[in-house]
Design a binder for these strands. Structure first.
Length: 283
DNA sequence: CATTGACCTGACTAC
DNA sequence: GTCAGCAGGTCAATT
């Protein structure tokens, strides 16, 4: 890759931190090789790296890069709109410039179905296997994310051979439903949050947490707050009263009440800083 | 807007 | 080097 374009980050595009954005665990298919991040945008291999307020990239037009990283979003305003509690402020400080990328809806859905009850390295392995086994070759050693049609038409044993375990039937089932439902993305996008989530919950392998991940990461519904074990722990120990029973929705609702309409972004910063946030329960 | 247990598999931690 | 316990939940059954 000798030819690349350069995008000067300014205005709403700042703050932006490419490393934090791609390594925080929201996406699983980007790989850093030397200074460059290698990944796939749409059906094309992309190389990208950041140098201060310069973004060097190749393989995709600038508007695709800008849209994927949501560089038109006024992130500064969102961060400034949060309450100034010490835990969140520390998280924002440590992950400053992290942006929620616009993941393709199907890739996001399939990825988080595969991601349930697993750790990040395992998720990456599984997705890599799935892409190599079922994805279209797009050159340069890269593969596109497998289409739902392809997965829906594949035997469960072939899918399971990608180490997805019992999730094989969820992946295949959801692939079958979505590949037969051409307007699903537009329909979800047009629905209010609650209705959109209820729709997604009909898909096999998609529970509240995965549905919220899809809504937050693919549809940019910033009121969606995925509550995983980390967020659960952080909310319970730092934002809620101890010794009380909290359901998923109570924790998510509390997050929306505390952090406001962009609570999903607060969630992402808290998640990114999860290792640094003390676990009060251990004392 | 509840609670509980089984569940594929791999990467990590502690022996 | 080996091994139990655990990991970014979901589903089905149960009260």
């Amino acid at each position: 890759m000798s030819r690349y374009c350069t995008l000067h980050l300014e205005g709403d595009a700042l703050p932006f931190d490419l490393d934090r954005t791609l390594s925080c665990g929201q996406v699983f298919r980007w790989e850093k090789k030397g200074h460059w991040w290698c990944g796939v945008l749409g059906q094309k291999p992309v190389l990208i790296r950041q140098e201060g307020d310069l973004l060097h990239f190749s393989g995709a037009p600038e508007e695709d890069i800008s849209r994927y990283f949501d560089l038109d979003l006024d992130l500064e305003e969102i961060l400034a709109g949060f309450p100034d509690d010490p835990i969140l402020l520390q998280a924002i400080d440590s992950a400053y410039g992290l942006r929620i990328v616009r993941q393709p809806a199907w890739e996001c859905t399939a990825s988080y179905i595969v991601a349930t009850f697993a750790n990040i390295p395992g998720i990456q392995t599984r997705l890599k296997l799935l892409c190599e086994r079922f994805g279209e070759r797009i050159g340069d050693g890269h593969t596109a994310f497998p289409s739902p049609e392809k997965l829906a038409a594949s035997p469960l044993c072939d899918i399971r051979s990608c180490r997805v375990g019992y999730r094989d039937k969820y992946l295949c089932g959801t692939a079958a439903i979505l590949s037969a439902d051409h307007g699903w993305e537009e329909r979800i996008a047009a629905l209010p949050y609650r209705d959109a989530r209820r729709e997604l919950l009909r898909l096999p392998g998609v529970g509240k947490k995965v549905a919220d991940c899809i809504l937050l990461f693919a549809f940019h519904r910033f009121e969606a707050v995925p509550v995983d074990v980390w967020i659960d722990r952080i909310m319970r120990t730092h934002y809620l009263e101890e010794d009380t029973r909290y359901s998923y929705d109570r924790i998510a609702d509390a997050a929306r009440q505390i952090f406001g309409p962009n609570a999903g972004y607060a969630q992402e910063y808290l998640f990114a800083a999860r290792e640094m946030i003390p676990d009060m329960r251990k004392k």
